[in-house]
Amino acid sequence: MQLDPSFIWTAFWQLLGAIPTTLSITAVSVLAGFVIGAATAMLRMYRVPVLAQIASAYVTFIRGTPMLTHLLIIYFGLPMIIDGLAEHFGWSFRSVSIPMIGFAYISFSITAGAYMSEVVRAGILAVDRGQVEAAQSVGMTTFQSLRRIVFPQALAAALPNLANSVIGMLHGSTLAFAVSVVDINAKAQIVASTNWKFFEAYLAAALIFWGLTVLIERVAALIEKRVGAYNRGGVV
């Protein structure tokens, strides 16, 4: 077998069309996962009765099982639940109405939420407890101190881990092919199947993923720099 450099270029251009799908899966899972993770972290840190135990079990289970398993459980289990409820209550909506990418959104968001909860929790713990006590001493409520004092500093402290989570979800999005979602990696397999030049196609996919990863790292570094300058009083 000989390397075909020209096909790498050909595959590269054909794979560009799958980038929006990969980015949408990454963006939805990260944003939804951050919301889920923040809520889960707060429930655990403030030890809300019952909910804290449920949140801990959720984090433990998701972090202890593979991402692909989550996707397959959602893909096969969610339709059973939806169709069962629809039949019981007489709803017209059925699981077949859910697009395949929807299962990836739901599954990856749940997965990201568990990991994001640890990122958020670590960021909050990095904030000096004395600042919270000082905020409460001047009349701020718990919510106000969290919103004005804790969360901004926690977000700044968690930025490196958040960037790693985004990159992890970008790479994890390749698992969406298991439920027939055509992302970059799946598109590479389709392109290569026409002439069996899988090495060249996957090499082109690797270059695209590498480029996206570098872009995320650069954006994260820029945000860190801006946040650091703001905390030092260098940005008005």
Rank of each mutant, 00 (worst) to 15 (best):
L31Y: 09
A32G: 11
G33H: 01
G33W: 05
G33D: 00
G33I: 02
F34C: 02
I36V: 11
G37E: 03
A39V: 14
A39D: 08
A39I: 14
A41R: 03
M42D: 00
L43T: 06
M45D: 08
M45T: 05
Y46Q: 11
R47K: 14
P49R: 11
V50K: 09
V50G: 06
L51V: 06
A52S: 15
Q53L: 11
Q53Y: 14
Q53D: 12
A57Y: 10
A57R: 07
A57L: 13
Y58G: 00
V59W: 00
T60P: 02
R63T: 03
R63A: 01
G64A: 02
G64K: 06
T65I: 07
L68N: 03
L68I: 06
L68G: 06
T69P: 07
T69A: 15
T69F: 15
H70T: 03
L71D: 00
L72M: 13
L72F: 13
I74R: 03
I74A: 05
F76M: 12
F76I: 09
G77M: 07
G77F: 09
D83M: 07
D83T: 13
D83G: 11
H88V: 15
H88L: 15
H88N: 15
F89P: 05
W91G: 11
R94H: 08
V96F: 14
